[in-house]
Design a protein around this nucleic acid. Structure first.
Length: 118
DNA sequence: GGCTTGACGCTTA
DNA sequence: GTAAGCGCCAAGC
């Protein structure tokens, strides 16, 4: 992984259809449990990459964040429901059931020291 | 190199 | 149960 963004995308691409992951969870797998914000930042920048299922990444409460955009969250919810993800009355996803974890999280490990400029 | 911003998260009230 | 505050890491100026 040449940079942090690609490291994040590599994980997101592994999320199966109908399942979701949280920002903090991805950050933890990358080796930076506190870098949830940076993960979200990477998602925002991933708008162009069609092969990255960004809609399957939500916050730790099981909700859609996307505070900056207005139509984005609506689209995200629509895409997830199309995959079978269920939202409750509070527009929250049941993470206890739909949260997914890679079989080999260590292969996504991204040591800060290995970070290489683009 | 330093300051500001941002799809987050945990702790406290 | 919700709301506000502080800390976190990486990117862009």
């Amino acid at each position: 992984m040449p940079n942090f963004y690609e490291a994040v995308y590599a994980v997101v691409r592994e999320i199966p259809r109908g399942r979701v992951m949280t920002y903090g969870q991805i950050a933890t797998i990358l080796g930076a449990p506190r870098a949830a914000r940076a993960v979200g930042y990477a998602m925002r920048a991933s708008g162009r990459k069609d092969d990255v299922p960004w809609q399957r990444v939500i916050n730790g409460k099981g909700r859609i964040s996307a505070r900056t955009e207005v139509e984005r969250p609506m689209l995200q919810k629509m895409l997830l429901e199309a995959e079978g993800v269920v939202f409750d009355a509070a527009e929250t996803v049941d993470l206890a059931v739909l949260r997914w974890e890679p079989e080999h999280p260590e292969r996504f490990y991204f040591a800060p020291s290995e970070r290489v400029p683009l």
